[in-house]
Amino acid sequence: MIVSSGREHLDAGGLVVKQAAALSESEPVLFQLREKGLEAAHLLELATRIKPLLDTSASRLMINERADIALLSGAYGIHLPENACPADSIRRTFPGLVAGQSAHSREAALDSMRSGVDYLIYGPVFATPLNERFGPPKGLEALGRICRSVRIPVFAVGGITPERSFACIEQGAWGVAAMAPFIDPGTLRKTITTFRSYLPS
Protein backbone atom coordinates (compact mmCIF):
# COMPACT_ATOMS: atom_id res chain seq x y z
CA MET A 1 0.00 0.00 0.00
CA ILE A 2 1.24 3.43 -0.94
CA VAL A 3 0.40 6.53 1.05
CA SER A 4 0.54 9.96 -0.61
CA SER A 5 2.98 12.57 0.63
CA GLY A 6 0.60 14.96 2.36
CA ARG A 7 2.38 17.86 0.71
CA GLU A 8 -0.05 18.52 -2.11
CA HIS A 9 -1.23 21.83 -0.63
CA LEU A 10 2.38 23.08 -0.51
CA ASP A 11 2.68 23.25 -4.29
CA ALA A 12 4.08 19.75 -4.58
CA GLY A 13 4.12 20.11 -8.37
CA GLY A 14 1.28 17.68 -8.82
CA LEU A 15 3.14 14.80 -7.18
CA VAL A 16 -0.04 12.83 -6.54
CA VAL A 17 -1.08 12.95 -10.19
CA LYS A 18 2.45 11.92 -11.24
CA GLN A 19 2.35 9.03 -8.76
CA ALA A 20 -1.05 7.97 -10.07
CA ALA A 21 0.18 8.15 -13.67
CA ALA A 22 3.14 5.90 -12.77
CA LEU A 23 0.76 3.52 -10.98
CA SER A 24 -1.40 3.25 -14.08
CA GLU A 25 1.39 1.12 -15.56
CA SER A 26 2.55 -0.69 -12.45
CA GLU A 27 1.49 -3.81 -10.63
CA PRO A 28 -1.70 -3.09 -8.67
CA VAL A 29 -1.48 -1.49 -5.22
CA LEU A 30 -3.71 0.26 -2.73
CA PHE A 31 -3.10 4.01 -2.99
CA GLN A 32 -4.13 6.01 0.04
CA LEU A 33 -4.77 9.69 -0.68
CA ARG A 34 -3.81 11.42 2.54
CA GLU A 35 -3.62 15.17 1.98
CA LYS A 36 -4.84 16.79 5.17
CA GLY A 37 -3.79 20.26 4.03
CA LEU A 38 -6.18 20.25 1.08
CA GLU A 39 -9.65 21.76 1.35
CA ALA A 40 -12.48 19.31 0.62
CA ALA A 41 -13.29 20.70 -2.85
CA HIS A 42 -9.67 20.33 -3.99
CA LEU A 43 -9.34 16.89 -2.46
CA LEU A 44 -12.49 15.77 -4.28
CA GLU A 45 -11.13 17.19 -7.53
CA LEU A 46 -7.80 15.43 -7.07
CA ALA A 47 -9.41 12.10 -6.13
CA THR A 48 -11.76 12.26 -9.12
CA ARG A 49 -8.80 13.00 -11.38
CA ILE A 50 -6.57 10.13 -10.25
CA LYS A 51 -9.27 7.45 -9.91
CA PRO A 52 -9.27 6.54 -13.66
CA LEU A 53 -5.45 6.43 -13.68
CA LEU A 54 -5.46 3.86 -10.88
CA ASP A 55 -8.27 1.90 -12.56
CA THR A 56 -5.98 1.29 -15.53
CA SER A 57 -3.78 -1.03 -13.46
CA ALA A 58 -6.52 -2.30 -11.15
CA SER A 59 -4.93 -0.31 -8.32
CA ARG A 60 -7.41 0.82 -5.69
CA LEU A 61 -7.94 4.33 -4.35
CA MET A 62 -8.43 4.77 -0.61
CA ILE A 63 -9.34 8.22 0.74
CA ASN A 64 -8.02 9.23 4.12
CA GLU A 65 -10.70 10.19 6.69
CA ARG A 66 -13.39 11.66 4.39
CA ALA A 67 -15.98 9.02 3.49
CA ASP A 68 -18.05 11.61 1.64
CA ILE A 69 -15.16 12.29 -0.73
CA ALA A 70 -14.49 8.57 -1.12
CA LEU A 71 -18.09 7.99 -2.15
CA LEU A 72 -18.24 10.98 -4.49
CA SER A 73 -14.96 10.19 -6.25
CA GLY A 74 -15.85 6.54 -6.77
CA ALA A 75 -12.92 5.44 -4.60
CA TYR A 76 -12.63 1.86 -3.40
CA GLY A 77 -12.74 2.84 0.22
CA ILE A 78 -11.95 4.98 3.17
CA HIS A 79 -9.00 4.94 5.53
CA LEU A 80 -9.81 6.14 9.04
CA PRO A 81 -7.19 7.54 11.40
CA GLU A 82 -7.33 6.15 14.94
CA ASN A 83 -9.18 9.30 16.13
CA ALA A 84 -11.62 9.46 13.22
CA CYS A 85 -15.40 9.53 13.20
CA PRO A 86 -16.42 6.11 14.67
CA ALA A 87 -15.95 3.31 12.16
CA ASP A 88 -19.29 1.62 12.89
CA SER A 89 -21.27 4.76 12.06
CA ILE A 90 -19.18 5.26 8.92
CA ARG A 91 -19.89 1.65 7.90
CA ARG A 92 -23.62 2.12 8.39
CA THR A 93 -23.68 5.40 6.49
CA PHE A 94 -21.37 4.37 3.66
CA PRO A 95 -21.94 0.62 3.31
CA GLY A 96 -20.46 0.47 -0.18
CA LEU A 97 -17.00 1.55 0.90
CA VAL A 98 -14.22 -0.73 2.06
CA ALA A 99 -12.97 0.69 5.37
CA GLY A 100 -9.52 0.49 6.91
CA GLN A 101 -8.25 2.05 10.09
CA SER A 102 -4.92 2.98 11.65
CA ALA A 103 -4.17 1.49 15.04
CA HIS A 104 -1.26 2.30 17.30
CA SER A 105 -2.12 -0.10 20.13
CA ARG A 106 -3.64 -3.55 20.66
CA GLU A 107 -6.75 -2.02 22.27
CA ALA A 108 -7.27 0.27 19.29
CA ALA A 109 -6.76 -2.64 16.90
CA LEU A 110 -9.38 -4.75 18.70
CA ASP A 111 -11.81 -1.81 18.85
CA SER A 112 -11.39 -1.25 15.11
CA MET A 113 -11.97 -4.89 14.30
CA ARG A 114 -15.10 -5.02 16.48
CA SER A 115 -16.47 -1.89 14.83
CA GLY A 116 -16.32 -3.73 11.54
CA VAL A 117 -13.37 -2.36 9.58
CA ASP A 118 -11.93 -4.49 6.79
CA TYR A 119 -8.24 -4.03 7.51
CA LEU A 120 -5.79 -2.31 9.87
CA ILE A 121 -2.62 -0.35 9.44
CA TYR A 122 -0.41 -0.88 12.49
CA GLY A 123 2.72 0.99 13.43
CA PRO A 124 5.14 2.57 13.48
CA VAL A 125 6.91 -0.79 13.35
CA PHE A 126 10.34 0.74 12.65
CA ALA A 127 11.71 4.21 13.45
CA THR A 128 11.30 7.03 10.94
CA PRO A 129 11.62 10.77 11.48
CA LEU A 130 8.08 11.27 10.15
CA ASN A 131 6.24 9.14 12.65
CA GLU A 132 7.95 10.33 15.83
CA ARG A 133 4.63 11.85 16.83
CA PHE A 134 3.23 8.34 17.23
CA GLY A 135 5.90 7.60 19.83
CA PRO A 136 8.78 5.15 19.71
CA PRO A 137 8.68 2.31 17.16
CA LYS A 138 6.62 -0.70 18.24
CA GLY A 139 8.94 -3.32 16.81
CA LEU A 140 8.34 -6.61 15.02
CA GLU A 141 7.25 -8.55 18.09
CA ALA A 142 4.40 -6.13 18.80
CA LEU A 143 3.39 -6.37 15.16
CA GLY A 144 3.25 -10.14 15.56
CA ARG A 145 1.06 -9.85 18.66
CA ILE A 146 -1.38 -7.56 16.81
CA CYS A 147 -1.52 -9.88 13.81
CA ARG A 148 -2.35 -12.82 16.10
CA SER A 149 -4.98 -10.78 18.00
CA VAL A 150 -7.18 -9.75 15.09
CA ARG A 151 -8.89 -11.69 12.35
CA ILE A 152 -8.55 -9.02 9.67
CA PRO A 153 -5.58 -8.16 7.44
CA VAL A 154 -2.89 -5.98 9.03
CA PHE A 155 -0.58 -3.72 7.05
CA ALA A 156 2.69 -2.79 8.77
CA VAL A 157 3.69 0.87 8.54
CA GLY A 158 6.64 3.01 9.69
CA GLY A 159 10.17 2.74 8.32
CA ILE A 160 9.14 0.09 5.81
CA THR A 161 11.69 -0.96 3.17
CA PRO A 162 11.56 -3.90 0.75
CA GLU A 163 14.00 -5.86 2.93
CA ARG A 164 12.01 -5.18 6.12
CA SER A 165 8.74 -6.18 4.41
CA PHE A 166 9.68 -9.81 4.55
CA ALA A 167 10.16 -9.68 8.34
CA CYS A 168 6.71 -8.05 8.66
CA ILE A 169 5.11 -10.80 6.61
CA GLU A 170 6.85 -13.40 8.80
CA GLN A 171 5.15 -11.80 11.80
CA GLY A 172 1.77 -12.35 10.18
CA ALA A 173 1.28 -9.02 8.41
CA TRP A 174 -0.87 -9.20 5.31
CA GLY A 175 1.04 -6.38 3.61
CA VAL A 176 3.04 -3.22 4.16
CA ALA A 177 2.26 0.49 3.81
CA ALA A 178 4.75 3.27 3.16
CA MET A 179 5.09 6.79 1.88
CA ALA A 180 8.77 7.72 1.56
CA PRO A 181 9.97 4.89 -0.74
CA PHE A 182 7.34 5.87 -3.33
CA ILE A 183 7.87 9.60 -3.36
CA ASP A 184 9.75 9.64 -6.67
CA PRO A 185 7.32 8.98 -9.54
CA GLY A 186 10.28 8.21 -11.82
CA THR A 187 11.26 5.10 -9.88
CA LEU A 188 7.81 4.17 -8.57
CA ARG A 189 7.20 1.18 -10.82
CA LYS A 190 10.63 -0.29 -10.15
CA THR A 191 10.22 0.23 -6.40
CA ILE A 192 6.91 -1.63 -6.45
CA THR A 193 8.52 -4.52 -8.32
CA THR A 194 11.29 -4.64 -5.72
CA PHE A 195 8.74 -4.65 -2.90
CA ARG A 196 6.79 -7.39 -4.65
CA SER A 197 9.83 -9.64 -4.74
CA TYR A 198 9.86 -9.62 -0.92
CA LEU A 199 6.12 -10.16 -0.54
CA PRO A 200 4.05 -13.31 -1.03
CA SER A 201 2.22 -13.28 -4.33
Binding site: A41, C85, F94
Partner: peptide, 26 residues
Protein backbone atom coordinates in the same frame (compact mmCIF):
# COMPACT_ATOMS: atom_id res chain seq x y z
CA UNK B 1 -19.36 23.10 8.94
CA UNK B 2 -17.55 21.48 5.99
CA UNK B 3 -17.72 17.83 7.16
CA UNK B 4 -20.48 16.33 5.06
CA UNK B 5 -19.25 12.86 6.08
CA UNK B 6 -19.90 13.60 9.75
CA UNK B 7 -23.23 15.29 9.05
CA UNK B 8 -24.32 12.17 7.15
CA UNK B 9 -22.99 9.74 9.75
CA UNK B 10 -24.85 11.38 12.67
CA UNK B 11 -27.91 12.61 10.72
CA UNK B 12 -27.44 16.33 11.29
CA UNK B 13 -30.14 18.74 10.19
CA UNK B 14 -27.69 20.05 7.61
CA UNK B 15 -24.29 21.34 6.57
CA UNK B 16 -22.68 24.70 6.07
CA UNK B 17 -20.22 24.83 3.19
CA UNK B 18 -17.49 27.29 2.26
CA UNK B 19 -16.41 28.00 -1.29
CA UNK B 20 -13.55 25.45 -0.93
CA UNK B 21 -15.72 22.72 0.56
CA UNK B 22 -17.78 20.01 -1.18
CA UNK B 23 -20.00 21.69 -3.83
CA UNK B 24 -23.46 22.57 -2.48
CA UNK B 25 -25.25 20.76 -5.30
CA UNK B 26 -23.39 17.57 -4.38
Amino acid sequence: NDRLDIAMAMHADGVHLGQDDIPAAT
